[in-house]
Write a protein that binds this DNA or RNA. Sequence first.
DNA 1: CCCGCTGTGATTTTT
DNA 2: TCACAGCGGG
Length: 655
Amino acid sequence: MLDLNSLNPQQRQAVEMVRGPVLILAGAGTGKTRVITFRIAHMVREGIAPRNILAVTFTNKAAREMKERVAKLLPARVRQRERAKEEGPRISTFHSLCARILREHIEVLGYKRNFVIYDESEQLGALRKVLSQISAKGESSDPRVLLALISRYKNGGARALADSPARAMVEHVLRRYESGLRACNAVDFDDLLLLVLRLFTEHPRVLAACRETFQYVMVDEYQDTNAAQFKLTHLLCEQHRNLCVVGDDDQSIYGWRGAEISNLLDRSTNVILQAANAVIQNNTRRRGKNLWSARGQGEKILLEEFKTDEEEARCVVDEIEAARLMRRIPWGGQAILFRTNQQSRPLEMALRQRNVRYHLIGGQSYFDRREVRDVLAYLKMFVNPHDDTSLLRIANVPARGLSDVTMERLLAASQQRGCSVYSAMRHTDVQGEFPERTRGSIRGWLEFIERVGGALSAEPSLMLAAWADRFLDEIGYFAELRRAEKNVETADNRIRNLKDLMSDLDRAAGLGPEERLQAFLEEISLDSEREEKREAQGDQVTLITMHSCKGLEFPHVYVVGLEDGLLPHSRSKMEGTQDEERRLFYVAITRAMETLRLSYCLGRKKYGAIAPCHPSPFLRELPAELVENAAERSKQPVAAGSGGHMFAAMRGAAE
DNA sequence: CCCGCTGTGATTTTT
DNA sequence: TCACAGCGGG
């Protein structure tokens, strides 16, 4: 239930100022998100139609959380009405919002309604295709770097690269890359925003309709919005001016994505906040803010040193278990934070070894698995056979007589005719260029696409899970997986992955098969970590990068791998973004509500061999009196056997 | 045309 | 360490 008295005066003022522009600049853990959720609930109570409210978050996870929190504040009858009519307040990321808008209006921009959204690896694929065409000479321009430049260029406009020598090159490649995507009826992440901007400027009626719908707008993590997002917000709000933005300049950690930096405390202990203050004060160019808490001083921060990353992982798990068994702190109250996704590996191994339930946020683990990518490509192709990238990926997986050479010739033919590869395959002239045998393969493939894809529109009661299972079996995909994988267990694992994937296909109940499939694909391209199922299911340690932990909080936090080169990342030195790295450290520190443990290693496995490391210079910025240094307390790695037994015994005693 | 083998090269962060 | 691109035998 909504009780404004539980807010402090500043928060309350921000909640009640429903009209006109509001800026909330506040430090970590000051209840910024709470202000937004209360504000939404308050508006609804004041009689504003929920559908006229828009709240934009930075991640899908944050959006989900906010939805839940708002729902709890709304009276039950409003909630029910909403669910029935699907008219609740719109709470989503910029990207999801734009995807929804485009789904409705994109046709006026010359795309088809069933456009697909390319993720990074698909973007890379499309880009590589372009590069192979234009730079036949061994000009080894790294597509990843180029893609980053393209994204910068698209988001920040030409200005972003004005002084860069790469600019001409980027513009040249970009033109072809764009037309490549267009030909596939595909858009990338940046396009989602940019196309909506175009829609708004070129088609004022669409803009007017959106303004009419979104009369009250709130943006969380405003310090992370980029130029396109800013423009979008501005366009939506310049008339009614009902815009409330919330942010913290000290938490701006997405500069590399084009973000531009343009309260009230009751959470962490003072030790944690003082340490954070000391760190962030080393940054210049910030607005003064000091954090403090009414929760008392709290425990000192523990700083530990380990020999290797594997020892670090083992010991952190030991500590997690010790906290759980001796201090009754559940797994769910503990989180491990790290700088890069790959750091999760040794941690996962150690957690598994001890049977500690955990949940890894982000990371490209699941959706980057080859079999999952393959099947997604099949699904995308059935939604839109003109999506060359998807079609090329799986045309010969499993092998069906359409070799690379054949596909390359087909690709060339499609470029000559200015059509998709699929269309080119259907041309009898094109087919005629191939030997009889290959021609047969092409026809067989076309027949397959039309028959299986046709079922989507022809059979209204089609269940996608069964449909997908059937065609994967038909083409021998499962058999191929089993055959190609020597290890039976990993093969079974891969197949289980796919069954998991398929079991989610029909989640959007109430839609026809084609729309249902589209909804599924859209959800996973925009929200790759939708792990709701696992998240909801009980007590688990959270594994998360420092970037994606923003906005979350945990009673007990372990920040691992605090080494020079990881944090600050070695790359940041060349790019001159060390302040951003420091803010990242600040964000990580302030996730902790009760206890905070930091650790670094003297050596870390890199490319198989152990490379020496040094502690992060940021650690020296922590005031010595707040830190208990456990470095000398030489930690012996606990032998896997004995430690495990000890904890098993303790667990038995505890239950 | 297929498939397995070898060697090379890569590693920030997210929608 | 691992993923993937390129090469040569079948």
